[in-house]
Amino acid sequence: MPARERWTAALAGLCLTLLPAVLPAQNGGLVPPGLAQQTTQPKPAQAKPAQSKTVLRIGAIPDQNPEKLNRLYGLVADELGRQLGVKVSYVPVTDYAAAVSAFRTGNLDLVWFGGLTGVQASLQKPGAQMIAQRDIDAQFYSVFIANTRSGLKPIQNQKGLAVLKGKRFTFGSESSTSGRLMPQYFLSQAGVKLGDFAGGAPGFSGSHDATIALVQSGAYDAGAVNEQVWKSSLRSGKANRSKVTQIWRTPSYPDYLWLGQPNLDQRFGKGFTAKLRAAIVSWRPSDAEQKRILELFGAQQFTSVKAGEYKKIEQVGRQIGKIR
């Protein structure tokens, strides 16, 4: 091969060898040989870690039938979620003690308690906030009811409760303020001990609805229930006046309240507890959704709570051994 042709071939080979080293990179620089193809491919996007959304978990003592509770607190969860801009979830519990336990362990953030369970939960969780009560809770009442075939007549004064000695009698839940705590207190003031009932002990139905049904059926001669549930049962027809009747109404005492965890501001932001209280207290019958909630609660509105009013509940709770 002539010298000129050999020089031309050598020059062409050298260019082919150096070509990969001078390919432009995406960033305007140079890439090393063998990596040009890789740098032209986009890197797969890194999946961002899922962020858990803080949920406000609400609960309530199961003082009425589960169907009504699910309906009521589902509405409450929706309304609070709308007003506060947070996710709210209703978490049912099996009994009164379970509600107190779930609040103590922090598994529930906001709970609708009766007076006794509210005091129990407050004592077990220092710093717990009494958020609000209904307009009917500062002066609440229990009623004693009787089966119409029991022979029991309306009682004119508290001392008249002595006629219940020897009768088959039932309370509601063992931890109910209006279905056990205060009725037992008024009975004791009238000289009636738990051992004075037929069989040497009272029954515990578990809820106000159950107490009304048991007395109406004749399984018990008499019982004590929340006045608000009693009136609601009469309106709905679940309580039949020809079979069960009211025989005495107690003096008033403070009862139900919303109780919140002490760390709500830390979890949901500064001022959240105050916003929560303001939201609940703002509910009015003029708003369609809020009206449904208030009707199920048997109230016209919610108000702020005076914690000192519940000292009486604590005292009675200690007297009968429900608070130690």
Score class of each variant (00 low, 15 high):
Trp7Ile: 14
Ile145Thr: 08
Pro24Glu: 07
Asn240Val: 03
Gln290Lys: 12
Lys243Val: 07
Trp112Lys: 00
Leu276Asn: 02
Gly74Ile: 10
Arg277Met: 14
Ile136Trp: 02
Lys68Tyr: 08
Thr54Asp: 09
Pro20Asn: 01
Gln158His: 14
Pro66Gln: 00
Trp112Tyr: 00
Arg71Cys: 09
Glu79Cys: 11
Phe171Lys: 00
Ala60Lys: 01
Pro20Ile: 00
Val22Cys: 11
Lys159Cys: 05
Asn107Ala: 11
Gly179Val: 00
Ala60Leu: 01
Ser232Ala: 11
Val316Asp: 05
Thr54Glu: 12
Asp78Leu: 15
Ile323Asp: 07
Met182Trp: 05
Tyr96Cys: 01
Gln189Lys: 14
Thr148Pro: 04
Gln266Phe: 11
Val316Lys: 05
Ala288Pro: 09
Val86Gln: 06
Gln290Asn: 11
Asn70Gln: 11
Gly191Leu: 06
Gly81His: 12
Pro254Trp: 05
Asp255Lys: 06
Leu257Ile: 04
Arg284Gln: 15
Ile131Arg: 08
Ala21Met: 10
Pro262Lys: 05
Thr250Val: 10
Lys48Asp: 04
Gly74Val: 10
Phe186Met: 04
Tyr256Arg: 01
Trp112Phe: 00
Glu67Leu: 12
Ala307Arg: 11
Gly118Ser: 04
Leu294Ser: 04
Pro24Thr: 07
Gly321Leu: 15
Asn107His: 12
Leu276Arg: 01
Thr8Gly: 07
Leu214Asn: 03
Leu214Pro: 00
Leu194Ser: 10
Lys153Asn: 15
Met130Asp: 10
Arg267Ala: 10
Leu294Arg: 02
Pro33Thr: 00
Ser142Leu: 07
Ala279Ser: 15
Thr40Tyr: 13
Gly85Lys: 07
Ala239Phe: 00
Val111Tyr: 02
Gly118Tyr: 05
Lys291Val: 05
Arg292Cys: 04
Ala60Phe: 00
Gln26Val: 12
Gln266Val: 14
Trp283Ile: 10
Ser242Thr: 07
Glu67His: 06
Leu164Thr: 08
Ala299Cys: 12
Gly160Phe: 12
Arg82Pro: 03
Thr170Lys: 00
Thr273Ala: 13
Arg71Gly: 11
Ala77Gly: 06
Pro62Ala: 00
Gln51Ile: 12
Ile320Gly: 07
Arg4Cys: 08
Gln319Trp: 08
Lys238Asn: 04
Gly114Met: 02
Leu234His: 01
Asn157Phe: 03
Gln158Leu: 15
Phe302Cys: 03
Gly74Phe: 11
Leu18Phe: 03
Gly237Pro: 13
Lys312Tyr: 14
Gly166Thr: 12
Lys43Asp: 13
